[in-house]
Nucleic acid binder design. Structure first.
Lengths: 145, 145
DNA sequence: TCTATTTAAATCGTACACGATTTAATCGTA
DNA sequence: TACGATTAAATCGTGTACGATTTAAATAGA
């Protein structure tokens, strides 16, 4: 047991916080051109991958609950990117579906990933390895929680 | 140039977002025992490392501006952890100083890092390498921004 | 079948995060 | 020394996050 706290630079959590933060700053101007925030973009990525999902399914993938997702999805609906409708088979759940506008963004936004890759300025294999290490860390942290 | 967006699992940014998120969920209950939020904890870590700093210096280290820090620091002052006082040498700046209570938390909170390390369930060398990879990524992302 | 329980969203209150603006103090230069 | 430019916090509005609670629908058992 240490008798002092680690410094910021020593904390793994802070390196995650900083990297995530720096990533957010890169995404922000790219997404602003589409009037998207970063969490809204993640919702679109999830829906491009598989459309017509329940709020709770999106939440499971993004690790967000209805208290965060409901207002976020309402804003996206107002922006004309998605539709929200009660599931006729089970009126408790709400199905989220892309509009034509929301679907059309997939092609336009594809360049965003390229911009990020260029900014990271590292070869794909290195980034893929970092990504996989992070996935393993995330799994272990969730198991412990 | 890709004509489709990457899936969530393929995005490095999402693996960062998820790992950061999982880390936050692990910290939350540990910090709640001290009535601290995660950003407040980071401010304390920074002050334990070096006390008596300007708001802008804290901001440079945490990558936060006064619009975020000012209300956060006011809450910490109300909680009796820090003091805020205008710098007599330059009344534009505000110096943030730990109270006895804020300083005393360093020893009590030292166990938090150990809990996180235990949850990460990996040897220190592996975590240190991941941390250093993240630092390098953050540097490159900031240069590009 | 009726009711207690469970489930899924939504709502509420608090706390970050950040772009844009405002206020106040200091500095630079004529 | 006066005054425009710069600097540091603070303020304002919007958008996440999240714990706790509420509402409404579906389900399981007596």
């Amino acid at each position: 047991m240490l008798d002092r706290a680690l410094t910021l630079d020593e904390l793994l959590c802070f390196s995650l916080y900083s990297a995530n933060h720096a990533m957010g700053r890169l995404y922000r101007p790219l997404l602003a051109r589409f009037d998207l925030t970063y969490p809204q973009y993640l919702v679109l990525v999830a829906l491009w991958q598989q459309d017509g999902r329940k709020v709770s399914d999106l939440g499971a993938e993004l690790q967000l609950e209805s208290n965060t997702l409901t207002p976020l999805l309402k804003r996206m609906e107002t922006a004309g990117l998605i539709r929200r409708a009660r599931n006729p088979q089970d009126e408790r759940s709400v199905i989220v579906t892309l509009t034509d506008k929301g679907r059309a963004l997939e092609g336009e936004a594809a360049e965003i990933s390229n911009c990020i890759l260029a900014a990271a300025d590292a070869d794909l294999a290195e980034l893929a390895e970092l990504r996989d290490r992070l996935h393993r860390l995330t799994s272990r942290l969730r198991e412990a929680g």
